[in-house]
Design a protein around this nucleic acid. Structure first.
Lengths: 233, 233
DNA sequence: CCAAAAGTGTTATGACTACACCCATGA
DNA sequence: TCATGGGTGTAGTCATAACACTTTTGG
């Protein structure tokens, strides 16, 4: 593989810093919180090192538009399926050894069930990685990912943001497991259900989810399209 | 006044967007939440229009360093007295009519009592403006200011951030009035005191604040230097 | 002795926690 | 009929909200 442009903020560009975006795209599969990573093969990293998908922000696009574009090109996921939220802007001078790069970082949330087969799959270009695994990432991506997970944990507890990582229809057990995967703690089944139902943030459909050797579960969907700021947990 | 450079992101610069910072510096005086504004006399604004202090981020400084610098130069306040927190990065294309400017916005908090006479004063260069007044600001500064106030209101309720806008020593009444000024709502004196004392986020000094034709009030200071994430209200 | 702000306690209501068994289904 | 996950109620404890009078000081 060739690397045409190792130094992206060379002295004659240094009137202005280079603007980029990095995206931490999360999904939940099999009771595990996963993040989408890509291999980093740019200098000074040529070895087997992983990083968050991202790239430059063009002068004619907003930071969020750039995040959508790189989600498609780098993370190989259709950005229309993903809910984006701005996380933080990282501007420390040595954060990218190639030059001065300021990164507007985003959190992305996508339900596993909405992903196509190729988006669910791991490939050479992009793959899902469990957030519980400790792994040294390129650049300052560990810092970005840590902040993203922290934000996700805190916001899921006082907003209805979980909507964006759950499928349109889900059982209360699936919802509880999503919370548990993100918070890394066990919740009491009865108390969780009472709380969620009292808040009226979900509406029961009149259908059941069949398919196991056990009692079918009632299906629910979120009452409102919007993310509301209500104390969920 | 002369305006040498009306277009700061001319086409040949457009390889990269221009990076800037805007700062919403708050203080509380006389039970009112104030924000530091400056007159905007750059194109296309030559009339009596106000805006947030801010300016470009140099290639050799972080966004926060730029915020400190412009706090000193534009807002005319010693940045060492101010607590900064990153708010949001605004990158919409038409947000600045002079060209493509991406702004990393900051919240600044400063206790009125820490300000010098000239910092407290209103001048031609910078002045304190009550946040309850509705005023049309330059650029997208109304949007930035609204988000800053919203963030301040929400964060003061679940962190000990109020430390950064209160003097080192204060009475519980002063503390309660600070909360009321920011939240724009009356709090119950007895419940407020019980809550704050139970949380042990403040420590009583063994001194009283004298000076009125009334009973002297016990002085307190915050127990910890750090801003903690505890449900305050 | 008056004005002004400081300081203090109780009760009712609602929320949270902990905890264990029966139900509906498919194999 | 067994295994599997779905679904439910109660009691104790704790937090919150509403509410009014006495204390200390300076003038």
């Amino acid at each position: 593989m060739k690397h045409k442009k190792h130094i992206i903020a060379s002295p004659e560009h240094l009137r202005f810093a280079v603007l980029a975006t990095d995206i931490a795209i999360f999904t939940v599969r099999d009771k595990k919180l996963l993040v989408r990573l890509i291999p980093v093969d740019r200098p000074p990293y040529f070895t087997d090192i992983k990083g968050l998908p991202g790239g430059l922000i063009d002068p004619k696009e907003t930071a969020e538009e750039a995040a959508l574009r790189h989600t498609k090109d780098k993370a190989r996921i259709d950005p229309k399926k993903v809910h984006f939220e701005q996380l933080y802007t990282f501007s420390s001078l040595p954060r990218d050894p190639r030059g001065r790069v300021v990164a507007v970082a985003y959190i992305g949330l996508v339900p596993w069930e909405k992903l196509s087969a190729s988006e669910q799959a791991d490939s050479e270009e992009a793959f899902w990685f469990p957030t519980i695994s400790k792994e040294t990432l390129a650049y300052d991506h560990n810092e970005i990912l840590d902040m993203a997970i922290k934000r996700l944990r805190s916001k899921i507890a006082y907003t209805t943001m979980a909507k964006k990582i759950l499928p349109d229809e889900f059982t209360l057990t699936e919802m509880e497991e999503t919370y548990e995967s993100i918070l890394l703690s066990d919740l009491d089944k009865r108390n969780f259900r009472k709380k969620i139902l009292k808040l009226k943030i979900v509406t029961p459909l009149k259908r059941k989810k069949e398919g196991g050797a056990h009692r079918p579960a009632e299906l629910y969907r979120f009452t409102s399209e919007k993310i509301k700021e209500i104390e969920v947990l």
